[in-house]
Design a protein around this nucleic acid. Structure first.
Lengths: 253, 253
DNA sequence: TAATTAATTTCGCTA
DNA sequence: TAGCGAAGTTAATTA
């Protein structure tokens, strides 16, 4: 990896490092005392303090405080970032047109300025999506209940798309709504709205909420609406990897 | 600011820097080639690549690739982070109990390892919230329309809370739903559900969607449901600062 | 602690 | 490009 890192560069040198990093399409990481202004979808200001400033190769622009998971200010990918020296002050501006917004960092002193040109071709593999859960149930309908036969996925209604539509072993129509996390009352209301689309249906239609768990409120509402709940966890295997167990994952307590 | 930054430290030295940073409650920033595993609410793995690893003073733990605004993997504030050397490999683990989840970064080589103990007492001031918009309309009802008289905020119905309930100059009941951004069909449906709660009301009830703009679909749906739209921007002034104009904010094109 | 909701949500997908 | 919906959403507020 090619990189450059300097301690306590002065304002002018920091400016040079940022420009060099931008022109080389590097990831720029700076620790500095700065103030921040944002205007666009909302508007914010942040007085002086020590923060980490990062500009990524795709134009993502982040300002992190020493606390919180999320950046205190940011600009999304594809922002145009540029540095400028004005009256002895260093400004970094990230802007974009749609929506129009602008982030400006004013750097007063720099503790460390660096940029990195690295290799990272790998993308994240992630398991546990709601979509995978629906796929699993569609392919293995016995996970829902004995005799369940799914007929369609993403069945379109005027109140949105039903995850899975099918029939139980007695031929009753079934509407399935999936949640990959604990389901709340909104999930129940959503399911109810799907069932409303079958109000003129002659036969009884069963509504089934499928999730790892439900909140107490949601459980009550299910009873009130005469809907059902089926406990099911989202699949945690990676694609093409269904049979592999990693030691790592057995270590969690 | 007190800080330490070293280039190309070996694994053992990186380990020392991390431990020193953690014990001093510093912000740790590392550029390294690493792989990442996560298990908890979901499960993920990320093969080797060059990334930025950051541990904050509140236990936030982030892994950033050179692209995307969001970290590719992370652990929220209050996570327990610790480093360990196993068979010549450096592991950093961040874990928490509720929900049970664990992030593990395996570092293969380090380009830069650093920690920073800085000062940052300032919090972000932000304007442009939906809540501010509702407040503004409640206090200045003429912004909605001449003769409008708001009666309650957060009026509770079985379909959720109505932002503002009031009456127009002819005494008609009005239900107002606010969005601080462009409103879509979901906002219209939400407003419709509030109006459904007044289905047994003897008089006509007006439904008004208040937002900076609406999507075309939402506009169509408003007509279909015979609901109205009022264009209104969220307030962009900071608290206690209503009369100040900042030069900065005039610069945006 | 749990549930509800807005967010400069972001991100990916689809039309 | 815009709209729609899930997300390891996060973060704040309230019960």
């Amino acid at each position: 990896m090619k990189f450059l890192s300097e301690k306590n560069p002065d304002i002018k040198r920091t400016y040079e490092i940022i420009n060099e990093g931008i022109s080389k399409r590097a990831v720029i990481v700076i620790m500095a005392c700065c103030s921040v202004l944002y205007e666009g979808r909302a508007r914010s200001r942040l007085a002086d303090g020590d923060r980490m400033v990062m500009i990524k190769t795709d134009g993502s622009f982040l300002v992190h405080q020493d606390r919180n998971l999320e950046p205190v200010n940011w600009q999304p990918p594809k922002s145009q970032c540029k540095a400028s020296l004005k009256e002895g002050l260093l400004h970094i501006e990230g802007a974009r047109r749609n929506p129009p917004e602008r982030l400006e960092v004013e750097i007063h002193s720099t503790y460390m300025a660096s940029y990195f040109i690295g290799e990272d071709s790998k993308d994240l593999e992630l398991a546990g999506y709601e979509a995978d859960m629906v796929d699993m149930a569609f392919e293995s309908p016995e996970l829902i209940e004995k005799g369940f036969r799914p007929t369609s996925r993403e069945y379109s209604t005027e109140n949105g798309f039903i995850d899975i539509l099918g029939k139980d072993q007695d031929g009753n129509l079934m509407v399935l709504e999936f949640k990959s996390r604990r389901a709340g009352i909104n999930a129940v209301k959503q399911l109810k709205r799907y069932l409303d689309c079958f109000a003129d249906h002659k036969q009884f239609v069963r509504g089934l909420l499928v999730a790892p768990s439900v909140t107490d409120d949601a459980s009550d509402l299910l009873k009130e609406y005469k809907l059902e709940f089926k406990e099911l966890e989202p699949p945690m295997e990676f694609d093409g990897d269904k049979n592999l167990t990693l030691d790592f994952f057995n270590n969690i307590e």
